[in-house]
Amino acid sequence: MSSTDHHPAALPPLDPHRLAAVRGQLGLTTGQVAWAVAAYRGRPLHPALITDWEQGRAHPRPDEVEALAAALWCAPADLVGEPRTLLECRTVAGLTPAEAAAATGLPQHRYLEAEARNRWRGTAEQTAGMVAALRPPPAVYVAACGLTGKVRIMVREAVTGWWPHHLRALHRLVPVEAHLLERALGLLHDAYQRLQAEAEAGDTARATDAELRAVAFLDRIDAHLWQALRDSAA
């Protein structure tokens, strides 16, 4: 992969838990990691900053994530969180634009255009190739295909009504295994119904609070779906 194919800015943000886990597996102290990062970058780094990164109190720049990966003998993708765009998916997958384009069956210029706009308009076959090559998280896939609004409406209807009725239609839009989507929808439905029960059974203040939480829950229902799918897959 040439320097023009990969840029550290295309990486997702650091996952503090992954950094701590990798360092722990290697048995290195924060001081040893700081020394190795400093040697890689050619400038000093205080060990306290490694601790701050691991605890989420500070956030390294993409070039610092790459230096951390070199210090910990791992790939940068091993230290970062979930990709948020098609570009970040390709970076984490370790593919060049040419490799990604070949996997999707698109000419490279068309693939790069889709990546730059974070919008996907491929055929069913091209989309299957994209999913297999880039392994986009459901949120990234849905957003790139312009389906976020449609999915949000369908999930709202599912959790406020009879959710199994919506399972098949949602499965056509969200690229996850059916049993994971089924479990996630069931959990969201139960969570919303508990809020509704609180609103109906509590005193005035408690009912009002539950109603507000129910509204907020529905306002962010797609984010709740993505988290429920992560939890179901764990």
Rank of each mutant, 00 (worst) to 15 (best):
P175V: 00
V140M: 06
R110V: 07
R172L: 11
L225F: 04
V131P: 01
T123V: 09
E113N: 13
G81C: 10
A223S: 12
H189C: 10
P44E: 13
A102T: 00
W53T: 00
W120P: 01
Q196C: 10
V80C: 08
W53K: 05
H165F: 12
R90M: 00
L19C: 04
W53P: 00
V131A: 06
E99R: 02
A214M: 07
T96G: 01
P137E: 03
V159P: 00
T96W: 00
E113H: 14
L106W: 06
G105R: 06
C74A: 11
A34R: 03
G24F: 04
L45Y: 01
Y111M: 03
W163F: 11
R90V: 00
W73G: 09
P13Y: 04
G56T: 06
V140P: 04
P47D: 10
A10V: 09
W53M: 04
G129N: 09
D231H: 11
R23Y: 01
I153W: 06
Y192D: 08
R23A: 03
G122E: 08
D203H: 10
L49M: 12
P76F: 02
D231M: 14
G202L: 11
A10S: 13
A205L: 13
G202Y: 09
P76L: 11
V155M: 07
T91F: 07
L72N: 06
D209L: 15
S232K: 08
W226N: 05
V65I: 15
A199D: 09
D78Y: 07
L72F: 02
V174L: 03
A128D: 15
Y141D: 03
Q193Y: 13
S3T: 14
T123P: 00
P16W: 07
A234R: 15
P8R: 09
G31F: 08
A144H: 05
L87R: 14
L170D: 02
H59Y: 11
S3H: 10
A116M: 09
W162K: 13
V65R: 05
Q126I: 12
A158G: 08
R220H: 15
A58W: 01
A103R: 06
L79F: 07
L229S: 02
A178H: 14
I50D: 01
T208I: 13
R57F: 04
V159H: 02
L185T: 06
N118H: 15
W53C: 01
P136I: 03
P175N: 01
R43L: 09
V92T: 02
L95M: 13
A70H: 10
P137V: 02
T208L: 15
R156L: 08
